[in-house]
Design a protein around this nucleic acid. Structure first.
Lengths: 87, 87
DNA sequence: TTCCATTTGTTCGTATGTATA
DNA sequence: GTATACATACGAACAAATGGA
């Protein structure tokens, strides 16, 4: 059951913001907002877009990294998919 | 009430470093340390001078840009005043 | 043209303190 | 007491723009 990719963060509901964002981002990736191998919005951008703290955004991204939905490169960005195999 | 242009950063007080620096820089500009249209000290210089991180310096400068006290040009510097009107 | 140093721009990594539910 | 959220700060790496040699 996919969540709504256009949902906003609900600070009152039972689901914590970071889990909400994780679901939203997965839905946006599934919808094709960002293609495989391409960077998603930066943490700062997500902070502005969803009105939540960077630590909360990072927590959501941690979930996606754990689930191998995205991978991160310091100083570059967060990419859809999995990291390239080591040479 | 203007702040002291010769103040140093107090990491213990109630006012955060980036706000302190913003006030200090405004005081220095008001005093004439840097004239209208001229570049102020570089970010790296301010980092060394005040012993704070570049991200913190940039945060202080963001405040000054927002208040139209200075404007920045990538690759050149941060200038006192406002950007020249578009031709 | 090419190269290099300087300066601002962007992005993720890590840590701390405070507040709230 | 615990988990979550937010604001702030510092660190590191690299990109982009500028200007001069």
């Amino acid at each position: 059951m996919a969540s709504n990719p256009d949902a906003e963060i609900d600070h009152e509901g039972p689901v914590t913001p970071y889990r909400q964002l994780a679901e939203i981002l997965k839905a946006r990736i599934a919808r094709g907002d960002w293609a495989e191998g391409r960077p998603i919005a930066s943490e700062t951008r997500l902070v502005q877009e969803y009105g939540i703290a960077r630590t909360t955004v990072r927590r959501a991204l941690d979930v996606l990294v754990e689930e191998r939905v995205v991978w991160k490169v310091q100083g570059r960005g967060t990419y859809v998919g999995q990291p390239p195999a080591e040479s």
